[in-house]
Design a binder for these strands. Structure first.
Lengths: 123, 123
DNA sequence: CTGCATCCGCATGGATACTG
DNA sequence: CAGTATCCATGCGGATGCAG
């Protein structure tokens, strides 16, 4: 399982991965679905204040197409559609946790140069 | 170092982290800087075909402001400016690797339902 | 209830030309 | 060499209205 990537393919790989997560609301949706939660369209709508239906369905559809989210249609009136994560979608957890860890490291390391944005090499 | 996040703060944290990585060229630049490489403006320009000066300087400036990239100015004629990663920027490596790992898992798990995008719960 | 269509404003990104 | 300034195209996201 050793990763042997060239600088370019690695950049492409991460860019592709990031592209799947891009979108104003995908992360929020994802976190509402983590842990095996199964939510209806209206549940998500209510759980995410400020999101429009268009955005909600758009982001859900994209993630469904990308294999991150599973869509379950119950043919009944009134309609009922539920959303949950695929196995692959659940597998995102560790990666996002790593990102979280990195973000948390901001205060702590970085060489103590938060207030020295530009170094000046003038002699 | 246990992460104890609520659903909301975690989403915010990751979103903030992702926001720092957003931008058409940031990842590409990052990967060219990983490994302690110190590159001049023109080096990056040459190394990344298709990028415009505007985009290059814009993305670099944002990452500098965010503490990911360090900018070193040599006051001389002709001008010479070098860019490298901060310690925190270098620390991004594991997180991006996790993302890479996740992306690689696409083929392999996900319950074998790549061809069944929408499940149908009709009785 | 769930989801699609349309229109609109704004931010992002790209091309080009110019400056210290 | 290392930017800055300007103009322009595109796309994203928001609001509203309609349909199955």
């Amino acid at each position: 399982m050793s990763h042997q990537y060239t600088r370019e393919t690695a950049a492409e790989g991460v860019e592709n991965a990031l592209k799947l997560l891009e979108g104003r609301w995908k992360l929020v949706i994802l976190f509402h679905l983590f842990g095996g939660h199964v939510l209806r369209f209206s549940d998500l709508e209510r759980a995410i204040p400020g999101i429009s239906q268009k955005m909600l369905i758009q982001q859900l559809r994209q993630m469904e197409k990308d294999g991150i989210v599973r869509r379950i249609v119950h043919h009944q009136v009134p309609p009922k559609v539920e959303y949950c994560l695929t196995d692959w979608g659940q597998a995102l957890c560790p990666a996002l946790d790593a990102l979280l860890t990195w973000a948390a490291q901001r205060e702590g390391l970085d060489g103590g140069n938060q207030n020295v944005p530009s170094q000046d090499a003038t002699i």
